[in-house]
């Protein structure tokens, strides 16, 4: 209870500082709008539905691309861990491309797919895929060989070992890879949406971009808040429960 109170106190303090900075006229109100202004924008955007629409469009792109990235990345990571040739080739490629900020894919995506949903999806998949491949590969490499031997003596073999021993044993690594993939995908999608207008749907990035065009800093800051809130929410609802579960199962030493 005390913890919750402190957290509320902290954020209330930040808000207060902000309000004070505005009152002190340190910057022009065009550059730094008051908290009330930002809240007002949020309220109106929520009321006319444009905010919900943008959130929906963005989340749809993100989730679709992310799921594709996972469905491709986990099996590919298992394959690179299993076959040395694939590890040396696809694994090296993944390692290289993982270091590439995925926003670098945006120009190429535009040329290949035009200003379309496909371009957005492509950028998100590129953000997710490589880190999931690498995390899965690393996770499998770190599975203690004794698990495999134990499973072998109990009559498990081939695909069954991969499904029931190697994959769950590598799970702590895979989950941290999924988390990283999520972060990369989220960042790259925002960058892409700010860069590019996609006519089939206005996402959060585009709302932010138009805020800047219109010099409406209340809109820009409000959308930034929404982006942060979605990031936090995703972490708390998607990953935190999985991590807690792993933590409980594995104990404190791992995961």
């Amino acid at each position: 209870m005390k913890r919750v109170f402190l957290v509320i106190f902290f954020f209330f303090g930040l808000l207060l500082l902000w309000e004070l900075a505005v009152r002190a006229h340190l910057w022009s109100p065009v550059l730094l709008p008051a908290p009330a202004k930002v809240a007002e924008y949020l309220k109106s955007a929520a009321a006319d539905g444009s905010l919900w629409q943008a959130i929906l469009v963005t989340l749809k792109r993100l989730l679709l691309g992310y799921v594709i990235g996972l469905l491709g990345g986990i099996p590919l990571g298992l394959l690179t861990a299993r076959f040395r040739l694939l590890h040396d080739t696809v694994g090296t490629l993944a390692l290289g491309l993982q270091t590439l900020p995925s926003v670098c894919w945006v120009p190429l995506a535009l040329l290949w797919f035009g200003q379309s949903e496909a371009a957005m999806l492509f950028v998100v998949v590129m953000g997710t895929l490589w880190s999931v491949i690498i995390a899965t590969d690393t996770g499998v490499q770190h599975v203690p060989p004794i698990y495999r031997r134990a499973a072998l003596t109990m009559g498990s073999k081939g695909f069954h070992i991969w499904l029931t021993v190697i994959l769950p044993a590598a799970l702590p690594f895979i989950v941290s890879g999924m988390k990283q993939g999520w972060a990369f995908a989220w960042r790259s999608l925002m960058a892409a949406e700010i860069f590019v207008t996609i006519l089939t749907g206005f996402g959060l990035g585009q709302l932010l971009h138009y805020g800047r065009e219109l010099n409406a800093m209340d809109q820009v800051i409000a959308i930034m808040f929404v982006i942060v809130a979605i990031g936090l929410l995703a972490d708390k609802t998607l990953f935190a429960p999985i991590e807690r579960l792993l933590h409980r199962r594995w104990g404190t030493s791992q995961a």
Binding site: P144, R149, S156, A169
Partner: peptide, 25 residues
């Protein structure tokens, strides 16, 4: 069946799950 020197128990399964593992085949 082999019982190894270090614990080769599977940490992702609970105690019952570990004992059941060999019966799944």
């Amino acid at each position: 069946l082999v019982m190894f020197q270090e614990a080769a128990l599977f940490p992702w399964l609970d105690v019952l799950g570990n004992v059941i593992f060999g019966l799944k085949m």
